[in-house]
């Protein structure tokens, strides 16, 4: 017993380092596995509050470009609105049943990162505003990411610029679908894999979300094909996509909640159980 205590006292620095190092490794490994609620995240009262007050100042710096983005979106929505009015016909749904499947909430990005390999954004909306894990996040130009953790007033978002993100995407002109991932090289490009060789792809084609998961509805723009090549087995394309979104300049984003998620999930689970 005496010897053990002596050993501990002699090597206390080493043992302390080892202990603290293991704790940090546990935290690190947690961030590399998808959907394990993190113990260490910035959606808490202290860090969220600090980032919020910083954003109150820095928000002014990008005011002009953000106004431009919002104005562009307004014009696009106006165009849609006027076009749809002219097409209105007698099969219009009655007002009681006309509730869209998707619910949008406006949020501001109060912290944006894009230089690391596992980038996470922080939003100034949280549980109190109805956000929860697995809601999609988009900006007016395209997809941004998926909500990971929420606190009362803040939420963290796993950006598309994150090596653990896997989002289903498809070609706009045909229904061939694949999986998005990020090779961590540039914040302007992400990669699409698993598109079969038979798909007719050309440089400049638009890529949209496929709506195969209940997170994003179908048809949210992602980017255009920059270049592509066949993979080693020559069965699938590996496509380099230029994002529509400028991920380095984000301010106003929308979260999308699919109201039918629970229904869809229970249906899918029922099928797999049988």
């Amino acid at each position: 017993m005496q010897q053990i205590i002596n050993f501990i006292i002699r090597n206390k620095n080493f043992l302390l380092s080892l202990l603290l190092f293991s704790i940090s490794m546990v935290f690190t490994i947690q961030t590399h596995s998808y959907h394990k609620s993190r113990f260490i995240n910035s959606a808490n009262f202290l860090t969220g509050g600090i980032y919020n007050s910083i954003n109150n100042f820095t928000g002014y710096l990008s005011l002009k470009s953000q106004n431009q983005v919002l104005a562009e979106e307004n014009s696009r929505l106006k165009m849609l609105l006027f076009n749809s009015e002219s097409k209105k016909d007698s099969t219009y749904l009655d007002t009681v049943s006309y509730n869209g499947t998707y619910k949008f909430t406006l949020a501001n990005v109060i912290r944006n990162t894009y230089s690391g390999t596992n980038n996470v954004l922080l939003l100034n909306r949280g549980k109190n505003d109805g956000l929860k894990q697995d809601l999609g996040v988009i900006s007016s130009k395209g997809i941004v990411g998926i909500i990971d953790g929420t606190s009362k007033h803040y939420a963290t978002v796993i950006s598309v610029l994150n090596t653990i993100n896997k989002i289903s995407a498809q070609l706009k002109k045909t229904n061939h679908f694949g999986t998005l991932y990020w090779d961590a090289k540039s914040p302007n490009f992400i990669q699409l894999t698993d598109i079969p060789k038979i798909a007719p792809i050309v440089k400049g084609d638009t890529i949209i979300t496929s709506g195969r998961s209940s997170i994003f509805p179908k048809g949210i723009p992602i980017g255009i094909i920059n270049d592509f090549k066949l993979d080693a087995a020559e069965n699938y394309y590996e496509i380099n996509i230029k994002l529509f979104n400028d991920m380095t300049n984000l301010e106003h984003v929308y979260t999308i909640e699919n109201i039918d998620t629970a229904e869809i999930d229970s249906l899918l689970n029922k099928n797999t159980d049988e």
Partner: peptide
């Protein structure tokens, strides 16, 4: 290291690197 990690959502990588150099 952990304080920086909390602020930048990086898990424990700063803490691990800092403990290493401190040792």
């Amino acid at each position: 290291g952990l304080t920086i990690d909390v602020f930048s959502d990086t898990g424990g990588i700063h803490a691990a690197a800092c403990v290493f150099i401190a040792y």
